[in-house]
């Protein structure tokens, strides 16, 4: 039952927005990557694509309610000895709490849904993924921590991410906002060490770009890129 409801919601979503999804997937295919932000205003569609060294994700999400968005996504991780795991799924993200402070807002989200997964080219198996996401943002500060776990047929994978960014100026609406910061990511499929990515962030009304260089003690110089479009 826990998996059935997201599946039904996901199918309804796919049916209702088939044209938009087709267009979005066509746009995403050449990018082969994405990662989700969870703040999707109601009736808005967001395409995200992210690529970083060992991880590639693509996601298409839609704001169903002010506190609920649905997404279809694909994750691909390359682990130790080039072991590749792929997950494709439907995801619901629910805003648990939004705190309105004097300078900014803090958000707690829970997200998750069913996935189908392949590992090292074996037959695909069904499972689930989910996690928690917290962010706090002002006009000039952005921080985020998130934890995501994949559970597929006795195989587990956990990904922990933290971001901290600062904007040297508060951009007006309509201007390009520029941020500088760092992302830390730990993936249990890797050696267990934390990879650091110094990054720049630029966004305007309908587009968003993160770009950086990822490094851990084994690999350095992997390009990190995250692109989002909102429409």
């Amino acid at each position: 039952m826990g998996i059935f409801i997201p599946v039904v919601l996901g199918l309804a979503f796919v049916k209702a927005y088939l044209k938009k999804i087709g267009l979005a997937l066509a746009l995403l295919l050449p990018l082969q990557a994405s990662y989700a932000g969870l703040f999707i205003p109601k009736d808005m569609t967001m395409i995200m694509a992210m690529r970083t060294g060992e991880m590639t994700t693509t996601e298409l999400s839609y704001g169903l309610k002010p506190n609920l968005s649905m997404a279809v996504n694909h994750f691909e991780f390359t682990g130790h000895h080039d072991r590749i795991s792929r997950y494709t799924g439907v995801q619901a993200a629910y805003l648990l709490d939004r705190h309105y402070g004097s300078q900014g807002i803090a958000n707690w989200y829970v997200f998750g849904g069913p996935v189908t997964s392949t590992y090292m080219n074996a037959d695909s198996k069904n499972g689930a993924q989910g996690g928690l996401w917290f962010d706090y943002e002002t006009l000039r500060i952005y921080t985020r921590v998130s934890a995501q776990r994949f559970l597929v047929h006795q195989r587990e994978q956990s990904v922990y991410t933290a971001q901290a960014l600062w904007a040297p100026y508060a951009a007006e609406f309509g201007e390009v906002a520029s941020w500088v910061g760092v992302q830390a990511m730990r993936d249990s499929m890797q050696t267990g060490q934390t990879a650091l990515t110094p990054m720049l962030r630029f966004f305007e009304r309908s587009w968003w770009l993160d770009i950086g260089v990822k490094a851990n003690t084994e690999r350095r110089g992997d390009l990190f890129m995250n692109v989002m479009f909102l429409f």
């Binding site: 109601k42 009736d43 808005m44 900014g104 943002e137 002002t138 006009l139 007006e172 609406f173 906002a177």
Partner: peptide, 30 residues
């Protein structure tokens, strides 16, 4: 209250633009 991100606030602009009554829109995040 809470409007700190241009990317997220763009949905407000989009929906206000779609109103037949709207002539001009101005958003100030600060």
């Amino acid at each position: 209250e809470g409007m700190v991100c241009a990317f997220c606030a763009s949905s407000i602009e989009k929906k206000l633009k779609a109103l037949p009554a709207t002539s001009e829109i101005y958003i100030n995040l600060e």
